[in-house]
Design a protein around this nucleic acid. Structure first.
Lengths: 165, 165
DNA sequence: GGAATATATCTTCCTCGGCAGATATTGTCT
DNA sequence: AGACAATATCTGCCGAGGAAGATATATTCC
């Protein structure tokens, strides 16, 4: 029994038995969304590991690459666009600089600010990895038709917008 | 410009400018799903913190509660149902036992096995918190109509099933 | 019964990320 | 110019979780 349910479906059935007074329907969406995030993360991470990067470090490289030539941002800008704290920026940049993928320089007109810039090997690496990464994402969506993808994109965008993220 | 786009929409626009050779459409789904997971986590966590629990610790209490009377599982079962490693189980149970919410006992017929059981205060706490938690989840879905919720549930279930999670 | 193997849990070590405060620099106001 | 506030980044500490190995117990095979 319950063999035709996915994991979240089984959780809902258990809660329905133990707490029939509660409405578990939201879990059907939010629980599955979290499991998908975990599963997708597990599927996506190996591409970064193959390149010797953590996914957090890739985020920083990607932010610099997306910014366009000359591929440089301040730690504050990196913290904002990647939604991490300044302390985490420092540590990620430490690792990337040690690997020779970025440089950290002072800027002349404001001594408080640093300029984190992709090195040429860093730019080459992120350009290579991002291609593999996007193809990998495409693979994980292969089960959906174009119409289903459109509907899913619309529903998720509606949700991010309503939550303001 | 780009003021009418959400965060992921801006990322896609940046990538389209920098790497027009790549197909970024998958990011429209996977990127938003990850941002939603983060945002939902942020919204859900305070309920657990209010009860003095981390969300990880709540997972363990919830697994015990869902199991039904007498609300007891082995560390191995907890690791399996909550999808964490055995080392993480040990630490979470350590914390919960120190808080008096669970007990950790030997079982008579197999000396390798332990039996993690909710105490009565533990059962009372999880029963209270789970009600608040489900209502909180419901709140985060308030922007969707019943039809949209049904469609979203179906699409996510299709996806979890195809990924085997 | 004893050795080898299997099982279940715990321990140790490591990385990662966040938070709070420290430091350095710039801007403002008098 | 000097004092004070604002800004930008870095440092030190902490907790969470994973991986790999250690420990304890049980089972199997001879």
């Amino acid at each position: 029994m319950n063999g035709d349910l996915d994991h979240v479906g089984r959780l809902q059935a258990q809660w329905a038995r133990e707490r029939p007074d509660l409405d578990t329907s939201a879990m059907g969406i939010i629980g599955r969304l979290h499991r998908l995030a975990d599963a997708l993360h597990t599927e996506l991470r190996p591409v970064f590991e193959q390149a010797g990067l953590s996914d957090g470090d890739f985020d920083v490289l990607a932010a610099l690459r997306r910014a366009g030539s000359p591929f440089a941002l301040t730690p504050g800008q990196l913290a904002e666009t990647t939604m991490i704290t300044s302390g985490t920026v420092t540590k990620r940049v430490d690792r990337l600089a040690a690997a020779g993928l970025v440089t950290r320089e002072r800027v002349e007109h404001d001594g408080r600010v640093r300029r984190i810039a992709l090195t040429e090997p860093g730019r080459a690496l992120v350009d290579e990895v991002v291609g593999i990464h996007f193809a990998n994402e495409e693979r994980l969506l292969a089960g959906f038709s174009d119409l289903e993808r459109t509907r899913l994109t619309h529903l998720l965008t509606q949700w991010t917008t309503s939550l303001g993220v």
